[in-house]
Design a protein around this nucleic acid. Sequence first.
RNA 1: GCGCCCGUAGCUCAGCUGGAUAGAGCGCCGGACUUCGAAUCCGUAGGUCGUAGGUUCGAAUCCUACCGGGCGUACCA
Length: 589
Amino acid sequence: MTALKSKWQEYIYNAITAAATKAGVDAGIDSADKIMVGNPPKPEMGDFSFAMFPFAKAFKTAPTAIAAMVVSELESNTEVIAAGSLSTAGPYVNVKVDISDTASEVLDVVISQGEEYGKVETLAGKKIMVEFSCPNTNKPLHLGHLRNDSIGACISRILDAAGASVMKVNLINDRGIHICKSMLAYKKFGGDTRPESEGVKSDHFVGNYYVKFDQWSKEDEKAIEGAQKMLQDWEAGDAETTELWRQMNKWTIDGIEQTYKATGISFDKVYYESNTYASGKEEVIKGLEDDVFYKEDDNSIWIDLSDIKLDKKVLLRGDGTSLYMTQDLGTAIARHTDWPFDQLIYVVGSEQQYHFSVLFHILKKLGYKWADDLKHLSYGMVNLPDGKMKSREGTVVDADDLVKQLTGLAREEIVSKERGDEVDDLDTTAHSIALGALNYYLLQVTPSKDMIFNPAESLSFNGNTGPYLQYMGARISSMLRKFEEKKVDFTGIEADASLLTVEEEKEIIKMLISWPEKVEQAAAEYNPSCLTAFMYELAKTFSRFYHDNPVLKNENKQLAVTRLKLSSAVLQVLKNGFSLIGIPFLEKM
RNA sequence: GCGCCCGUAGCUCAGCUGGAUAGAGCGCCGGACUUCGAAUCCGUAGGUCGUAGGUUCGAAUCCUACCGGGCGUACCA
């Protein structure tokens, strides 16, 4: 299709320059690829459109007249006439092309390339590290983490599809004052209890003590002091503190890993802040010696950011303990040493934009040239219909609960449709539908925007949703199964793309052709939502086509075979999209 | 105060490297199951694209100001 497109750009370009020469003017355009190609508002008007407005000035003529000139110029070329039919619509030149050759080609390409179709080379040879998730070890995952995980995992797959070599990394936030808070609360109120003894999932068990600390600290100022003291003990390597820390971290991480498993999240390498903060500290001290930083009277170490019109920022506390920035410095440096990347993408919420601009700036000041290759892929907050999630008001949507709830509803849906016996495994299928719904819901919104998570809507399986796409996949699969059963009736019959004359068929062909471009765009913009939009359009167009036009049941067997080929190409592209977005493909549902 | 982001249909979102009548889902109302899976399909209604200027042949899209909302501006992460 791109070949087709550039061919027409060439035709139009030649026609315009020829017309310009005849009119004795300079068309003001020097290459065919500068010709803008558009899509007519209605498919019956044509496949490509070319607006003549830009040439009005050079020709000193109304665009409508130029369109007429261009068309008459094109009609004198027999090659052009053979390639398509022309029409003018006011200032536009519209072209309707015969796409049967292209159709035949794209169907073959999609089917022979299979899951490779849509892989592109725009990032070939690039090493890209993607950091996402980054849980704290003091509480379980919530809805915000789910958006982070969805975006991070999806972007990783998209970059991979664009040819990059991708390393997915996690950073476990396992040290710091907030970690000490849940530890201290457990020490004070926990007694001999353990997750198993209470029958609570281990990360939730720890999270409950974090909540308890919050209540306690409101009544007793000593709570905060105690946490600070504990942090000092921890950094000093106090045995008892370290032991408690180890135990509680294990509980949280075990629990979070169960959640990752349930949501299909994985990493190539996991970093722990407890391993990198020390090198961050050294880096800060080195920077102090090199006069990049300065020391306050209380021994805290700072950077002056007035050169980039920001304030100043503390990098190390007066008591010598580390901060978020300290450890992020150490982590970044460790990563570049481990795997010298061309780009490192931090998938982190937009509330940390300031943090990252400072972090990147500091690394640059410390002399790391690769600081320019760091990118903060910032995403917006997830809010609820009645406002923000607030832990104090108990409105935080817990990740495990949400997945469980979605799975339960999907299960009910299957049962109520009496498909329980049809599907391969009820629980697995229900879970797959839940994941499809969740990932699609979270990824259809442009990452940079805040979004509202409407539980009722996200739980719906109708309309523009993941399960709708899964359903179309299952429908096509079902049809292909039926074809396999009756295959003998079709032996020796070859597909013929010139039979695809219905408007929807043409639209579908054009969409199939544009799939690789969509992947390219998604990678260039770090935006999965252009893929979700495309997939929905494709599924919907196919659905409309399928509703009105018999495929397998067509009396014309050759048309049946051709449409089957078209259907399986649609299924292939949908499946390729599914794997990028994180929608499990289901043969039956 | 300063910095960044966002204002598109009742609600949730697309569209934003400027181009023909601004799209979809949900919801509302109305149709289609003896037919390849109705988790489907079709149709109706619903928008001065926050406001005002500017650039342009042409602006939801680019620029400026203002209004409204969010986030940040922590020795939290």
